[in-house]
Amino acid sequence: MLKKTTVQKLSDLAAGLMEKGALIAPVREEAGHNFREISDPAAVDLDFYNTLLSPKSVFFPHTEDFIRYKTGASIAEAVCVEPDIRPTVLFGVRPCDVKSFEIMDIHFTGTGKVDPYWAKRREAATIFGYAFDPNTPADPADFYSTLGIGAADPEGSDVFMIRKDQDLLLQAVSPKGEKLLSELPSLSDASADDQKYFDGTVAAGRTFKTRFTCVEAEPIAKKFEDLFHNAAFWEKVSEACLSCGACTFVCPTCYCFDICDETLFSQGTRRRVWDSCMFTDFTLEASGHNPRTKVYQRLRQKISHKYSYHIRKYGPISCVGCGRCTRNCPVNIDIFSIVNEAMKA
């Protein structure tokens, strides 16, 4: 079922979706577009290349409260914070970011232990994927095609959207998406021409090339295992690295967090807060020992985790080539250039 609307009528669509639940969509902000919960349907803006921050925060917020307690009081008085789970529409997610949810699912639900916060939010969400335009070149930092992700892959979305000039074509991908689309009065039926355009774009997206050629996971995983003890290599590639957390915080597949107790006078909150393997104190042990004190050790961990350990443990590369880490690195370090260099080393 292919439906359509126009970009001019986007706010009608947004208003319709807001009746179904919370709408989280890209809005224009000072530093770029970001996914935010929408209160004004006119704020939804699809004129973006990709969002500054990844959409992972929709399912895995930067800060999430678990328990509230009073210091000095009995543990029996501590209360669990019930997560705020509502039907949600996540609107305008690029195909590489949709792919990232699948990778994150492995960690939060796929290994036998289920993180209820992630799982419930994920279940309550309907994802509207949004194709890159295969007729304009990709951002120089992107490399999703290298990892086998197309510019217009509908897989993983519930509804997939492709822009055709001033029209927005919406294709239901899952039964959940189908049901939702049929309930939106602002949409009209698309023509056979539109269907042809849609299918053509999906096909064009699969042959669309970002920089770098396709890679296979297995040889990379092996290479990084071999390189682990090659400190000279890692020192060389990490020489520019500042060891800040910008790359990990904008990354759609970084999932490390810290459990913090934050107190204000006697009111305590146990919460989960994003953490970054690039921080010195990430591996600091209670004894004072720190197994990763050097920048190269931390960068090695980050890259090997995504391109080696992850493949060995779970199968896929833990990277979707969205290019955010590269775009936001203060010193322009490019993760895939390092992978390339490693393969040559």
């Binding site: 000072e30 500042l242 800040c244 990990t248 970054s276 203060p330």
Partner: peptide, 12 residues
């Protein structure tokens, strides 16, 4: 309020 505490400022 926009700060994401990546500490890029202090590291740069």
């Amino acid at each position: 309020d926009r700060c994401i505490r990546c500490y890029a400022c202090r590291k740069a």
